[in-house]
Write a protein that binds this DNA or RNA. Structure first.
Lengths: 238, 238
DNA sequence: GAGTGGTCTAGACCACGCA
DNA sequence: GCGTGGTCTAGACCACTCT
């Protein structure tokens, strides 16, 4: 029996504070309530509150200063796909549109593959899909996603239009992203990439290979991203 | 009075485990001692042990599985400059050589500047230096560093050959990196960059602008990096 | 069922920033 | 001196994995 909707307290607090920051309740440069205040207001203890604040720091929403407080930072203007940081899919600020180029279909894994695959991943084949993503109606990045075809009934028949891939994985299959690793390069746009991103052939693009860990054993999500960094940067905190 | 050398317990444990992983005491794929074991062995409580393990996860040394344990991961082969993650300067694995192109000198800030500068930073001017960094005797990246000239006596007369900039800041000035933000783009190598990195003009390179926060108020370190990603990738965890 | 990591409580003392 | 965040203790219960 899956418990269904047990959300940890620190994640609830994270979401509350995140929304208040994005909505402007706590404005840029101002101080968040102190940790002790947050404890009192939400009926939590300090380690729990600090866990939520640590996540906000990782995602770049606040900056802590010992002896002073937690300073609210301006949410980044650029595309924050470096993080994905466990707690929230911190992609941009919502004005990201998605076009499905290739609906999910079962395919064999490419050989060789960037990351080492386990035996079970390899023999299961992968669910393959391609998306093109827009900011202000201009194509900004193109991504290829591969998920091992392990215990994901009816996945390839789902509609993904205007829905987040991660949202479907979370809501329909209780799959959560727990972390990941990635490699970045700068490469020249091939003919295919340049036409997709609407740039001249040979222009530099960011190329990202990533592996995302989930809460399911042996289920990793593999993505390849081609990012047109002419007008937008990729943004991250650490 | 500065306390001098008070290192938190969780950092000590982090360093111990990190060394054991890198030296092969805990081999790739094996399990770390359980959290309770580490508590007993080092005389710590679980939150403290978990703080150390969380840092190891962030830096990509282990991967945790609920109900199973902490699995040791292979340290990345590529250049890990995405993280710098507070606890350790996780640059590569040590075979990085450094050549100083421009010794530290006092300069005004460029106008405009990528990041917003505070009034005090702006009027203080900056300490400027350029470095070229090599892997296997091939130039891999070129970086420009700017530090506000605030209370850093004799900084520009120090020798930096084969020393880490961050090491000097930590040892001589008690300045620690607490976090940061960065923007990435793919750009074409200019004539200057291409000759420094020994690649044809116009080849794609990774361009990184970053701001590093320190434990000193109003003292941020600003870096610009040009990275030749032909043979090496930039690597990161999240 | 036993052991693991995930979450949480209820306290404590310290270092830092500011008035 | 006071409030802030930084570190730490000593417990507790739960969810997950393996046998």
């Amino acid at each position: 029996m899956t418990d269904g909707n047990k959300i940890p307290q620190y994640k609830k607090l994270y979401e509350i504070l995140r929304k208040h920051i994005l909505s402007g309740t706590y404005s840029e440069g101002s101080l968040l309530p102190s940790e002790n205040e947050l404890c009192a207001v939400h009926g939590l203890t300090r380690p729990t509150v600090r866990q939520a604040l640590d996540a906000l720091v990782r995602d770049g929403f606040i900056q802590k200063k010992q002896g002073k407080g937690s300073i609210v930072r301006k949410p980044p203007q650029d595309i924050g796909i470096l993080s994905i940081s466990g707690t929230a899919s911190a992609i941009g600020r919502g004005y990201l549109k998605t076009q499905i180029l290739q609906k999910p279909s079962i395919q064999p894994w490419p050989q060789p593959f960037t990351f080492d695959l386990s035996e079970i991943e390899l023999v299961s084949g992968c669910i393959y899909m391609e998306r093109l993503r827009f900011v202000d109606d201009q194509p900004v990045f193109y991504d290829i996603n591969r998920i091992p075809n392990i215990n994901l009934p009816r996945f390839s028949s789902r509609s993904f239009e205007n829905k987040s891939l991660f949202e479907i994985l979370r809501n329909q299959y209780q799959i959560e992203i727990k972390g990941g690793e990635q490699k970045l390069k700068a490469i020249k746009a091939s003919r295919q990439i340049s036409s997709l991103l609407n740039i001249p052939e040979g222009e530099p693009v960011l190329y990202i290979e990533r592996k995302l860990y989930t809460n399911r054993e042996e289920l990793n999500i593999y993505s390849t991203i081609y990012f047109n960094s002419e007008k937008h940067s990729i943004y991250g905190n650490f």
